[in-house]
Computed example of a mutant assay.
Amino acid sequence: MAPPRILIIAGSDSGGGAGIQADIKTVAMLGGHAMTAITAITAQNTLGVQAVHPIPTETVLAQIESVVADIGVDAVKIGMIGSAATAHALADRLAVLPQVPIVFDPVMVATSGSVLADDATIAAFRRLMTLATLVTPNLPELAALGGDAAVRAGGAALLAKGGHGDGDMVEDRLVTDAGTRLFTNPRIVTRHTHGTGCTLASGIATGLGAGLALEAATGRAIAFVRAALANAPGLGGGAGPMGHALGVAPFDALTH
């Protein structure tokens, strides 16, 4: 059986903890085939983002056309967007992509605190939210977008991520037309949380691309994020990357 084909539209993280790099690792670990349209190149590590170079909009679109025309797409994950112009162009292109689930992670600020989207780009997010199957903001992003009603105005489901909340439990809230489903888990106390949002959104997209229902895809992706957090390798001096390989070398595990 062919793996689900997941198109990732996001920025590159030179430190390997978030962005395209985290997305590819997640999709591979969950049984999908990852394809990419890179929107920006960043110089970043666990301490912060030192430089951002947006990719020209026409080049982002060319990457999408290349994979759609030849390989096809079963689900789309959108992360960091390099500019407002690219956000609008993506909305135009994805609007004609037939019946493909879209998971939109409205990235505004990196785990380190660095700003990754200006006001014009955030304003353009509203067009993408009307196309999305699911929007996955954390609590500060949800507030910046105007709350539940604003996110769901276009018909998308909402996953309000609870990692920025207080307390010993993390509550992720999935809101759909059918109601609200809470995913509640003990907080994993670690500074190595870089890429959690990217990983979660890509994990859900992989599940949807494989035909899972939204609630099942969300539950599996949350479980994977928690396993990756528990297996973080402890790299860097700041918000370090998670352990997407879950503490093993998968090829070696298969051959022994």
Rank of each mutant, 00 (worst) to 15 (best):
M1P: 12
A2M: 11
A2Y: 15
P3M: 08
P4R: 06
R5K: 13
L7C: 05
I8M: 15
I9Y: 07
I9G: 04
S12W: 00
G16Q: 02
G16Y: 02
G16S: 00
G16P: 01
G17W: 01
A18G: 08
A18D: 00
Q21C: 05
D23T: 04
I24H: 02
T26P: 04
T26I: 05
M29N: 10
L30W: 11
L30P: 13
G32R: 06
H33M: 04
H33Q: 01
A34T: 05
A34V: 08
A34L: 09
M35K: 04
T36K: 13
A37W: 03
A37Y: 00
A40H: 12
Q44H: 03
N45H: 02
N45M: 01
L47A: 15
G48R: 05
V49D: 01
H53I: 03
I55S: 00
I55E: 04
V60K: 03
Q63I: 00
Q63H: 10
V67R: 06
A69Y: 11
I71E: 07
G72R: 09
G72D: 06
V73W: 06
V73Q: 11
A85L: 14
A87E: 05
H88Y: 01
A89V: 07
A89G: 06
L90H: 01
A91G: 06
D92A: 09
R93D: 02
R93S: 01
L94M: 08
A95H: 05
A95Q: 11
Q99Y: 03
V100P: 05
V100L: 05
P101N: 07
F104A: 10
F104T: 14
D105H: 13
V109S: 06
L116W: 08
D119E: 13
D119R: 10
A120D: 09
T121W: 08
T121S: 14
I122W: 04
T130D: 13
A132V: 12
V135W: 07
T136R: 07
T136H: 03
P137V: 05
N138F: 06
N138Q: 02
L139D: 07
L139V: 00
L142G: 07
G146K: 05
G147Y: 14
D148I: 12
D148F: 00
D148H: 08
A149Q: 13
A149P: 14
A150I: 12
V151M: 03
A153L: 02
A156K: 05
L159Y: 12
V170E: 03
V170F: 06
D172Q: 05
V175Y: 07
T176P: 10
D177G: 14
T180W: 07
T180C: 13
N185W: 14
P186N: 09
V189R: 10
R191C: 03
T193Y: 02
G197W: 05
G197E: 08
L200R: 04
S202I: 00
S202F: 01
G203D: 03
I204D: 13
G209A: 15
L212F: 09
A216N: 07
A216T: 14
A216M: 07
T218W: 13
A221R: 01
F224I: 08
V225G: 06
N231M: 09
A232G: 08
G234D: 12
G234V: 09
G234Q: 13
G237R: 12
G237D: 15
G237P: 10
G238D: 13
M242E: 00
M242A: 04
G243R: 11
L246E: 09
L246S: 10
P250Q: 08
P250A: 11
P250F: 13
D252A: 09
D252N: 11
A253P: 03
T255Y: 08
T255M: 03
